[in-house]
Design a protein around this nucleic acid. Structure first.
Lengths: 340, 340
DNA sequence: AATATTTGTTTAATCGATTAAACACCTAGT
DNA sequence: ACTAGGTGTTTAATCGATTAAACAAATATT
């Protein structure tokens, strides 16, 4: 790589010290610099096509204008959409984004946190993995500004921006029951992640409040580690088989829904006649499925923007922690149009 | 943010110079350092939980172990999948990735290139926008290592890793014709991007070689700037209307396919009976559409890995340019099972 | 015993910026 | 004429690392 133009080069060309060049190009000491010298310096900078070395600047100023983004998997549409929103919001404030995928793994997440902190990111936006409480503690110990997104830990006081998962899930269930489902199922993750457990709680409370006797086979949890596709298929087999098969399913994530829908499709189960469906998150497939899917729309734009804004506020000054719970929106479509 | 532990702190604690600490922690001068001192230094580093400041290291060594990734839109599944693959490959070599979305806009791309270069990235992986030749020139002038991905400029000699777009498109058309399509259409972008024009050429040559008289209404091009959804809908209306409506369509990208499919779905056109379909790129929807879609599978894993490897090779040493054309794979499914 | 070599460590320059403090030189006030 | 203040610029320290070169002390060589 070619050596880049530095302050020194400009200084040499004009015949002044680097200090003066720095002052001029940063508009400091504006009153005190001879106009013609300032002119010359600016001209030289333009001619040489000077671009400040941000690494040097970062070192001196102890500020990198870089945000770290840690999600489960950047190739998951939910997270890549979020990444795009965060990128745009960060760019508005002249920040760039470094990202990493932690694969729902707290150890990998910790490694990423360290990698990003070693690079002196000014702050972090994190969709934390299960059991990542110690990571959070670590960040707090180091007074590193950060915001949790999508998931939070209720026992730890941090900044976070999350969906009202309980309510979203509750509303979805209420809708299913209102539409005549007698045996609604929930396919979700086996995890202690709070957002996911809130989705489960929404399901359970909705059944309770509607006096529906819950059957264990209606609720299936698949874990992150195993072969997800097979796990989903087995779970669905159990939900749909036995002596009390479900007549509707709420999928707890876009990933689960994708695997689930493919399997349901292959098994020739009719939607919504044999089975009503609701998914968390919109997917391209939501529109393309023969029965357009009822889904819980997450306010992902707000989520990304607010998280970034909170983070930037916390970078600029110490703020009291902010916790934002956003409401989802149930978009009702064909997959829950049951005929009794 | 808390002040971080530096070499100085360790040096002070052990009572030696920072130079010695650096030598020990980097295993330099291994023969010459007293074992017990080395021991003490390592211990102190561990106790203090020392983590080297990568910014300082980068400045000194003129190397950041950072790659820049510029794509059209990180929220596009094609690019986010690519991003994930590149992330993993980069991580294997201890690099991290900064990304930016250029929205198919050469000016924005140029701005991003500069932002990333100011941050001293060691190299760039770029899916270039239309008319970005000057950007490429700029990179070459600055001897910045880079690899183009997904798209390239035939007139410029650069590293690139791309699909054999011509062949992929040609094969898709051949398949449609073999299956009895008499009036195959192509929905593509209005752009000079080489990869896209190659897809068009594949279409045209396939028709030619099969002695099919081409009708102008069969080929529609929508531009990036306008409202894509409406543009696609209008294009499809024209392709499917008039006095020579198409009986099959090849979609030139996942984005076009997504809009297109939604519209086709809404218009109740039966696939494959009324219309056969092939898409570039697999989508979740490919499986979930009532007629699973025949699609051109891009070797995206290879694409990401190879691009990253070429880039890393070029960062480590000056290499001669490498140009890799990968073959697509036509995955044949229900959407092209026409009955005559 | 005098010199050469090895061993173990420190000094100091450097990367490319920023910025407080120092320093000449000029002008104005008394 | 002498001092105080203002103007315009440079000097030098600093951020946190790396590393060539210097150096002192111990050991080996003749």
């Amino acid at each position: 790589m070619k050596r880049k133009i530095s302050l020194k080069d400009i200084a040499a060309k004009v015949g002044v010290s680097t200090a003066l060049v720095s002052y001029v190009l940063n508009n400091k000491k504006s009153g005190r610099i001879r106009v013609e010298v300032a002119q010359k310096i600016k001209e030289a900078a333009r001619e040489l096509n000077y671009r400040p070395n941000q690494i040097a600047k970062s070192l001196k100023l102890n500020k990198t204008y870089t945000l770290g983004l840690i999600v489960a998997d950047i190739s998951n549409p939910f997270f890549s959409t979020l990444a795009r929103i965060i990128e745009d919001e960060a760019d508005k404030h002249n920040y760039t984004v470094i990202f990493g995928s932690a694969d729902e793994n707290a150890a990998k997440s910790f490694k990423l946190i360290n990698t990003l902190m070693d690079r002196q990111v000014d702050g972090l936006i994190i969709a934390p993995a299960e059991n990542a409480e110690s990571n959070i503690k670590y960040l707090q110990d180091h007074e590193m500004p950060f915001v949790l997104i999508d998931r939070n830990f209720p026992a730890i006081s941090t900044n976070w921006v999350c969906l009202n998962n309980f309510k979203a899930s509750f509303s979805a269930l209420q809708h299913l029951l209102d539409r005549g489902s007698k045996k609604p199922g929930l396919l979700t993750y086996k995890t202690s992640l709070y957002n996911i457990s809130e989705r489960k709680r929404g399901y359970e409370i909705a059944l309770l409040e509607n006096n529906v006797m819950f059957q264990p086979t209606w609720l299936k949890e698949v874990s992150f580690s195993e072969d997800m596709r097979t796990a989903v298929e087995n779970a669905l087999d159990e939900m749909l088989g036995g002596n009390s098969p479900v007549d509707s399913i709420l999928f707890s994530s876009n990933i689960l829904a994708t695997y689930g829908l493919k399997y349901i499709h292959s098994r020739d189960i009719r939607i919504p006649d044999d089975l009503a469906l609701i998914t968390f998150d919109e997917m391209d497939a939501s529109d393309l499925f023969y029965a357009p899917l009822t889904y819980i729309k997450q306010p992902i734009q707000d989520m990304g923007e607010i998280a970034t804004q909170i983070l930037l506020e916390n970078i600029d000054a110490i703020k009291k922690t902010q916790q934002v719970k956003l409401e989802g929106d149930l978009i009702i479509r064909k997959s829950t149009e049951m005929v009794e």
